[in-house]
Design a protein around this nucleic acid. Structure first.
Lengths: 236, 236
DNA sequence: AAGTGGTCTAGACCACTGT
DNA sequence: CAGTGGTCTAGACCACTTT
């Protein structure tokens, strides 16, 4: 077997968590149970569990067990302050509307150049989304995904409306890291219009590159956020 | 002994790294050497090393060894894009000047209220610093440190001009986590003046709480950043 | 070939959380 | 109290890097 046993256990548990078979807040099987299930020793099982803690899928409590973590917080990076509080645990007064795409195109934003891993002119799947809280638009997000045999993205709707979830379910691509640049800019006419802000009002701009479990495969996002009512928060 | 052996090994190595006895880019003693030195088994030594990787002090390479990481990047959170590139590996065209403090006072910024862990009116050591690149001011940082027997901070200068390093050297307090909120705001007259930007120009505002190795002890920072030339970037 | 880190076994004792 | 995770031992074989 090429893949280490602890990686297999890790992947197996991750699958059960993301698919909802292990519910948020519940307990994973104990270390000893997992040892039996996978014919492994505790050290091996613990290595898998330690990885899951590091990735934020579970927390552990001495004497109790491994607890499935609350929301899979998109890597603990961006979470709209108040998005979940205002909106409840499951996003439902928050809405996302797709303004454009998914559609094939090349990157036109020169701003991406210096953190681009691919050729500037390769083809990307493009997606432009507007996220709102209580009817008020807050985030404008333009996402570029290099077209490496994922053209089907443009044909079928997203799983649960989530891009990351779609990539995971349909292509087994797990987004697992990120690099970003944050700036304050003055709203252009177009951005002000979409975010219902005044022209020239301060807007948060985030340039982002996501790393994935597929070697050399990155996603790119250009995000504009009206932080008048909600701030962007992050942990760690 | 109350402290686990692997924690002791971890602390020992961390000390040698931060004090410069193990130089950046060089190799740590091999696992077997460390086993001998601490009369421990490899699993125990490896647990210490794994923690150091997680904290960013070292990287490891199969067949080679444990390599002391480059800069201790304040938790991989904020690093001025270009600060190190523009400025060389060791910060030296970047300057920090202390505008005010360290001095004792209470927090006056109501903005801190909702992520404050202490009472609003407890006493804090206050510090106001301006960071520049090539003579141009870029970051204004106001830091509040709860005054728990650290009054000496106000008496002696900072070690290497670094607050974190001072806390570590003089009080064995290690800053190891962070929570932040980011907003875009319009520059006030005062901020515009200090950052040499126009009044009402877009400024990045960061509200930050740092967690430390001392249970329940947090630092607070209010940061203003002119992102016209340099962006704030982060990894992970 | 020698040394390094990566994975794994088969035990052990302890501290903590539940009943 | 039984069950859980936290720490630790004393080995083993393998894959990778260097000489």
């Amino acid at each position: 077997m090429k893949i280490p046993l602890y990686r297999q256990i890790q992947a197996h548990l991750k699958e059960k968590i993301t698919s909802g078979q292990y519910v948020e807040g519940s307990l994973l099987p104990s270390e000893n149970d997992l040892c039996a299930e996978f014919s492994a020793t505790r050290m091996t099982v613990r290595q898998a569990l330690t990885e899951l803690v590091k990735e934020g899928y579970i927390t552990r409590q001495h004497g109790k067990g491994s607890i499935v973590a609350s929301i899979r917080k998109s890597l603990g990076l961006l979470s709209l302050k108040g998005w979940t509080e205002v909106v409840g645990a499951s996003d439902r007064h928050g809405t996302t509307s797709i303004l454009q795409g998914p559609v094939l195109q090349t990157i036109t934003e020169p701003i991406f150049k210096h953190l681009l891993h691919q050729e500037f002119h390769t083809e990307f799947v493009f997606l432009k989304r507007l996220r709102s809280v209580e009817e008020a638009p807050v985030i404008l997000e333009e996402t570029y995904i290099p077209n490496e045999n994922i053209t089907a993205l443009t044909d079928e709707p997203l799983v649960d409306g989530s891009l990351f979830r779609t990539l995971f379910m349909r292509y087994q691509i797990d987004v697992n890291s990120m690099q970003q640049e944050v700036r304050a800019i003055a709203a252009t006419k177009e951005i002000a219009g979409l975010l219902k802000a005044k022209v020239k009002s301060p807007i948060l701009q985030i340039l982002r590159r996501y790393g994935t479990s597929k070697e050399g495969f990155y996603l790119y996002s250009l995000i504009y956020c009206n932080t008048e009512k909600y701030a962007i928060s992050s942990f760690n």
